[in-house]
């Protein structure tokens, strides 16, 4: 007897991606390069975050043709982004048979108030979060994987670091709290108390937590791993750099060997130009993608 798409199977799939790098791609050609470099999965999206930032306009789910072409080109898992709250884009991605849906702040939100209820959809979801409360709310809605929001398309890792540190601080607070303090913590975080209970049982977030948003170098990837992330997403950092294949391979090796400085030196050599970064302070509040969703 088989039962498909249980939460255990969704969460278990995310566990299989751990220690790996998931790369943003906008077409099959980039997907091929990502697969060749050792990516554990690719993320299909309409435009990479740095271009979304530069060009503006409404950013939506990738075209069906592009997604299918990517799925037909690589054997590794294919993820795709849907707009926050756009449950019909999610239904379309589910029907297409995509492996993971990223309900992403990088795309223009479709609903200012609500995120997608993720339990009913067979395909697992990954969601961005800036702190423990946001992570727990998304898990409460059915997310099988969490990632830091960071600040996508900037090539600047500072926001991802901030979000990861904030998440770790929250988890430690939950773990050191007395039983009687738990409901008050849940109230402060705006988090379902059931998810806080799971954190206490497992000693960590109950689902896999990747780093995302602003990772551009092997050192950035290793930094996020040393801060306790389970793996990394790289968006603009690869295909906005001088030599995408070389840089992609280096980030993959650095993510596995994050605590081995000799290896990090080896892979950081001869990488060509990194993407040009943006100072977060130079962004207007309305330009910060991490502010989307809650």
């Amino acid at each position: 007897m088989k039962i498909e798409s249980t939460f255990k199977v969704k969460k278990g799939f995310a566990e299989m991606l751990k220690g790996g790098v998931i790369m943003d791609v906008v077409n099959a050609e980039q997907a091929k390069i990502a697969e060749k470099s050792g990516a554990v999965a690719v993320m299909a999206l309409e435009r990479i975050p740095a271009d979304i930032r530069a060009e503006g306009g409404v950013s939506r789910m990738s075209s069906v043709e592009v997604i299918q072409e990517v799925m037909n080109t690589v054997s590794i898992p294919v993820m795709a982004k849907a707009r926050i709250g756009h449950f019909v884009e999610a239904q379309i991605l589910e029907e297409l048979g995509i492996d993971f849906i990223d309900e992403s702040e990088v795309l223009t939100p479709a609903d200012e108030v609500n995120h997608i209820s993720k339990h009913e959809i067979k395909t697992p979801f990954v969601n961005g979060a800036t702190d423990i409360g946001e992570a727990c709310r998304r898990i409460g809605e059915g997310a099988a994987m969490i990632r830091t929001k960071g600040e996508a398309g900037t090539g600047n890792v500072i926001e991802a670091v901030r979000h990861m540190r904030s998440m770790t601080k929250g988890i430690n607070e939950v773990l050191s709290a007395d039983e009687n303090e738990l409901m008050a913590l849940a109230k402060n975080y705006g988090a379902p108390v059931t998810v806080l209970n799971s954190i206490r049982e497992s000693g960590r977030l109950p689902v896999v937590n990747f780093a995302a948003g602003g990772i551009a170098t092997p050192a950035d990837a290793a930094l996020m791993m040393q801060l306790g992330c389970d793996g990394v997403f790289v968006g603009s950092g690869i295909f906005k750099s001088g030599d995408p294949l070389e840089r992609a391979e280096a980030i993959v090796i650095a993510t596995t060997n994050y605590d081995n400085p000799a290896k990090l030196v080896e892979v950081s050599k001869n990488l060509g130009e990194p993407m040009v970064g943006i100072n977060i302070d130079d962004l207007h509040e309305s330009e910060k993608l991490a502010k989307r969703g809650w």
Partner: peptide, 13 residues
């Protein structure tokens, strides 16, 4: 590889 299909066909058995 992926003998049962993609992730939507993953299961407990």
């Amino acid at each position: 590889r992926n003998g049962y299909g993609r992730q939507n066909q993953s299961f407990e058995g």
